[in-house]
Amino acid sequence: MAADPKVHAFEEVAKHNKTKDCWLIISGKVYDVTPFMDDHPGGDEVLLSATGKDATNDFEDVGHSDSAREMMDKYYIGEIDMATVPLKRSYIPPQQAQYNPEKTSEFVIKILQFLVPLLILGLAFGVRHYTKEK
C-alpha cells in the first residue's frame, strides 16, 4: 500500500461504475477492481452492483477468504473521504411506462383483430365437430 495514500471523494469514485472502469469502497479504502472483473468468482455483475456506495457490508456478508482479502492489496488506490459519502444511498425508482388512454384503444383494437378471427374459427370448428353424424 502507498505510504501517503490519495484521498478520493465519493462522487469521483461513484463515476467508475462500468466493466472497463470499476472502483469499489470497502472499509474506507478505494479499490480499482477493473483488472479483476473477468476473474471474480461471482461474476462482474456482483462487483458492478457494489459501485456507487460503500460496499463494505456487501463484501463482509459474502464471507471472503483470507486469500481474497490479501488479494485486495494489489487493487488498492487510496482512501475515501468519509465526509463525502452519503449517509444513505438515495432510492431511485425504476422508470415505468406512463398510462396513455389514447394508445390503449389502439392496443385493444389490434388484439381484437387478432383474437376475433381465431375465436370464430374455433367456434366454427367446434360446431362442425359436434354436429357431425356419428
Results as ranks from 00 to 15, higher is better:
88 K>I: 15
112 L>D: 06
122 G>N: 12
76 Y>V: 03
87 L>C: 04
116 V>Y: 07
72 M>A: 15
66 D>T: 13
107 F>I: 13
51 T>E: 01
116 V>C: 06
62 V>E: 06
91 Y>F: 13
87 L>H: 06
54 D>I: 00
113 Q>W: 04
114 F>V: 06
69 R>Y: 01
51 T>A: 01
56 T>Q: 01
122 G>E: 07
105 S>A: 11
89 R>A: 09
87 L>T: 10
104 T>C: 09
90 S>R: 13
53 K>R: 15
88 K>R: 15
93 P>Q: 12
63 G>M: 10
82 M>S: 11
119 L>P: 00
79 E>M: 08
106 E>Y: 09
81 D>Q: 08
120 I>T: 06
87 L>G: 15
85 V>N: 02
75 Y>V: 03
114 F>Q: 04
120 I>N: 03
58 D>N: 11
95 Q>V: 14
62 V>G: 02
66 D>K: 14
74 K>R: 15
54 D>Y: 00
76 Y>N: 09
82 M>W: 04
74 K>D: 05
78 G>H: 06
81 D>K: 04
55 A>G: 01
103 K>L: 14
80 I>F: 02
98 Q>A: 15
77 I>Q: 02
88 K>A: 14
82 M>C: 02
78 G>N: 05
71 M>K: 11
53 K>N: 02
118 L>I: 10
83 A>G: 05
124 A>T: 10
112 L>Y: 12
107 F>V: 13
69 R>Q: 09
103 K>C: 07
107 F>A: 12
68 A>Y: 04
111 I>F: 11
120 I>S: 02
117 P>F: 11
61 D>G: 07
89 R>I: 08
108 V>R: 10
55 A>W: 00
56 T>M: 01
88 K>S: 13
100 N>Y: 05
93 P>K: 11
48 L>F: 08
56 T>V: 00
115 L>A: 12
118 L>D: 03
79 E>F: 04
82 M>A: 13
67 S>Y: 03
49 S>D: 04
57 N>S: 07
115 L>Y: 09
53 K>L: 06
116 V>L: 14
80 I>M: 02
108 V>K: 13
117 P>D: 06
114 F>E: 02
55 A>V: 00
100 N>C: 07
56 T>F: 00
88 K>T: 15
101 P>G: 11
57 N>H: 01
62 V>I: 15
114 F>K: 06
105 S>T: 11
100 N>K: 12
120 I>A: 08
94 P>D: 14
89 R>E: 12
114 F>D: 03
60 E>K: 11
65 S>A: 09
74 K>W: 05
64 H>R: 06
108 V>A: 12
78 G>T: 08
91 Y>N: 10
100 N>W: 01
78 G>S: 10
84 T>A: 07
100 N>M: 07
79 E>W: 02
96 Q>E: 15
94 P>H: 14
109 I>C: 03
75 Y>M: 07
83 A>V: 05
61 D>E: 14
89 R>T: 13
76 Y>C: 07
49 S>V: 01
81 D>E: 07
124 A>I: 10
107 F>G: 01
115 L>P: 00
90 S>C: 03
72 M>S: 08
75 Y>D: 01
83 A>H: 05
100 N>F: 05
99 Y>S: 14
84 T>M: 10
121 L>P: 01
63 G>Y: 08
74 K>C: 08
75 Y>C: 03
75 Y>T: 04
